[in-house]
Nucleic acid binder design. Structure first.
Length: 208
DNA sequence: ATGTCGATTTGCT
DNA sequence: GCAAATCGACATA
């Protein structure tokens, strides 16, 4: 199922309202089918969001900002929605998150996989792949590497020239969305069981 | 000052 | 299938 066939002609940035309205799980749903675009070093790379995970600051033990945990790293999460939260995982990988909810409500959506759309050659180069593979953008660390996102981009607004999320008219309806528990959060106790990972059914671009 | 541990990926067995 | 890679955030002292 190639979602890029459904792309409309117009692409416009999401409004700040998008990021601040509704529960983070609903926003994580709505982000499926949106475009994640980077323009670094005069190289544009674009991917359709295929897989997301929701993290809620209120009562979600898997969330870095759970129960008001406010540190230098999580500070951006407590700001308004529509900003980038990038952090280093396992000392190796930058993971990209979209901050949602209003100021002081620290929710976020992790982007775990994209369907490559623009700048495929650049993505492959950054990933060290001689040609596009299913694994090129499958997994949160793979997405950031392919798009060139690093911790330097922490705190950027998501409607900027270099980094932004766009709506191109693709709508993913409920029946097309598969829900499952989030990956790698076993430490979170019963919250590890929450079905807050969302993928587009049938997409070959989801992570393993 | 020090010790633990990741919202992962990759390569080798 | 398993383990190494790699480093900063965080907690504890």
């Amino acid at each position: 199922v190639e979602i890029k066939n459904r792309l409309g002609r117009k692409r416009r940035p999401l409004s700040p309202r998008f990021y601040e309205t509704g529960h983070v799980t609903d926003i994580a749903h709505a982000l499926l089918g949106k475009l994640l675009v980077t323009d670094f070093d005069k190289k544009r790379t674009t991917g359709l969001i295929i897989e997301t995970e929701a993290y809620s600051g209120e009562g979600d033990m898997a969330c870095h900002s759970h129960s008001g945990k406010r540190t230098a790293r999580t500070e951006i999460m407590f700001g308004p929605g529509g900003y980038a939260y990038v952090y280093l995982c396992y000392g190796i990988h930058s993971l990209f998150n979209i901050i949602t909810n209003v100021k002081e409500k620290a929710d976020a959506v992790l982007i775990r996989a994209i369907e490559p759309v623009d700048g495929i050659e650049t993505m492959c180069q950054r990933r060290g792949h001689s040609q596009l593979k299913k694994q090129t953008c499958a997994g949160p660390g793979c997405v950031t590497q392919a798009l060139g996102i690093t911790r330097d981009h922490y705190g950027l607004r998501l409607d900027g020239k270099e980094l932004r999320i766009e709506d191109a008219g693709v709508v993913i309806e409920e029946p097309e969305i598969h829900e499952s528990p989030r990956i790698g959060v076993e430490y979170a106790g019963e919250d590890a069981l929450l079905p807050w990972r969302y993928t587009i059914k049938g997409s070959p671009w989801v992570s393993k």
